[in-house]
Write a protein that binds this DNA or RNA. Sequence first.
RNA 1: GGCGAGGUAGCUCAGUUGGCAGAGCACGCGACUGAAAAUCGCGGUGUCGACAGUUCGAUUCUGUCCCUCGCCA
Length: 306
Amino acid sequence: MAPRVAALVGSTAVGKSRVAIEVAEAISAEIVSVDSMQIYAGMTIGTDQPPQDWRQRVPHHLIAEKDPSEELTVAEFQARGRAAIDDITERGRVPLLVGGSGLYFRALVEDLDFPPRAEDVRARLEDELEELGAAALHERLSELDPAAATRIEPGNARRIVRALEVIELTGKPFSDGYDFDRYDSIYRLAVAGLNRSRADIYARIERRVDEMLDAGLLDEAAALRASGPSRTARQALGYRQIYEATESGALSDKELRAAIVAATKKFAKRQEAWFRADPRVLWFDADDPDLTAQLIAFYRNTLEVP
RNA sequence: GGCGAGGUAGCUCAGUUGGCAGAGCACGCGACUGAAAAUCGCGGUGUCGACAGUUCGAUUCUGUCCCUCGCCA
């Protein structure tokens, strides 16, 4: 029988981490972070990693485990996450997946098999992109893999290049072997989503960005920059805006703060769209005073855990 | 008070030699298989400051008024 897995998803700043602690204690769960940036060490403030005292109450996995000078890929995250889930399950406890990285979540709980990658092929396609433009490469994709071409917009150079890379490496269409509209879990899965009004999310984001700046985000970002962050680590919200500001010059503190807030709001919207599309998610009101009890009951009933 | 500039989308502004008003941002919605906190797609916004005049037709031309900013007094 498939292992039981509990999950708590939702957009940034909705309040997942906090409620997850109490829920985890109640159902003897350990938390597996599903977050593409909290996995990096040294990005404590900007990625809003759960504080030490929370982590002492409940074991957390995939938080501050990876050196920011290294790139992270979905495939690696999938392997690490699966290992954590297996480990927790073997010890007789319940994995509680908590996070908002949509693709990473699906990579963990579904049978997604990521085709290989090759830097040299990628580099050549990037050169061609430079020369011919995205539209030309999209046209090529329509010939090689019509199904993929209809699902990737002609302007989306990144995904077009990736599709062509996979076709070249595997000799098979990019669209082969999976159906992204199916949401088949490999675990016995209970997914709760945390809901909050847009206005509340936005207000919480603004407050949190202020708190991060007060807590020394600028210094943390400078230290990270000096250590040579990988391409994936440096694009984390907050850090990215700080680096752009220092490179292109003159942004006032106020403008910088506004840029971070704006980018984070956009991100929250994308996250909501992602999880709204997932039929497995059962939604809960984050403001409900009874939220913790409801979540505990939901996981107990669905997974039949103590 | 005088002179100058300006009042167009929630914001910043473009524009119409007079013919159903448009960009960016914001906002909303969506897509998503080794960069995903990435990348990309779709969408609506309006008494064109007010009133009058000229005109088949005025946001555009004319007049008066109101408001904002700057300089001078």
